[in-house]
Design a protein around this nucleic acid. Structure first.
Lengths: 116, 116
DNA sequence: TTCTTAATTAACCTAGTGGTTAAATATGAC
DNA sequence: GTCATATTTAACCACTAGGTTAATTAAGAA
């Protein structure tokens, strides 16, 4: 795998289970068990997902008796946000073009109706 | 692979070569040859990267003689931006906490100096 | 100590990724 | 038609990802 931080972060986010875990952690700390509850996959699979998230710094794990409470650390998402933000003008542009296109289409439609 | 659109988009962005291609296309249309120039990988490898980008709708390819000019379509990035935006408050929060921590640390440092 | 629960590690499997080289296809130029 | 260039397809390879089950570690409870 590509080892630069941004690539690793994107890769970590490319799995819906991991994004769901982050979503859950947005609501506060949770144990591994709690995190696994919504999914039908095994505990080791969850552990692996958590390792991926931990490796890119999106979560950290504490210790409390036999539990390893996880908590969100969203800071790596700043870089993602910054990267994607550099393209904002492009999708706004495309949207504008699409919007203009649709408006034009509508105008033509009206014109067509009138002619009928 | 996970087949929901957002996962596929994140996965497409998880490769630095593909992100560089998007970066190049931000400067305007380019042929496959032109896109491949900065990299030391083979033409088929570039073709594969382009297919990945095309599959998630980040680029589209036209035809002009033997060239297939590629152009950026950033609209899928809106969803990425929206997703990551939902976490903004968390990284701003973490940053604040770090900031508060550093301020506190500095305060303690000063106190320590004074005592010496 | 023994039992139970939480979580991880080990070993394995399947499928997918990113790369390769060689061959095929498409198109304009001579 | 032949040649050269651009690009894709085919076939292959090493490695990784995401999953499994079984075994291991850690800690509180009986």
């Amino acid at each position: 795998m590509t080892s630069d931080a941004l690539s690793l972060t994107f890769a970590a986010l490319a799995d819906p289970t991991r994004r769901a875990i982050l979503g859950r952690l947005a609501g506060g700390e949770a144990s591994v068990k709690e995190l696994s509850r919504p999914f039908k996959i095994s505990a080791p699979a969850i552990t692996k997902h958590l390792k991926v998230l931990q490796r890119v710094g999106l979560i950290s794990q504490g210790r409390n008796a036999q539990w390893r409470p996880c908590r969100l650390d969203a800071r790596p998402l700043r870089d993602v946000s910054k990267w994607v933000g550099d393209y904002r003008r492009f999708w706004e542009e495309s949207f504008d073009r699409l919007d203009a296109y649709l408006t034009e289409l509508q105008r033509k439609e009206k014109h067509h109706e009138r002619k009928k």
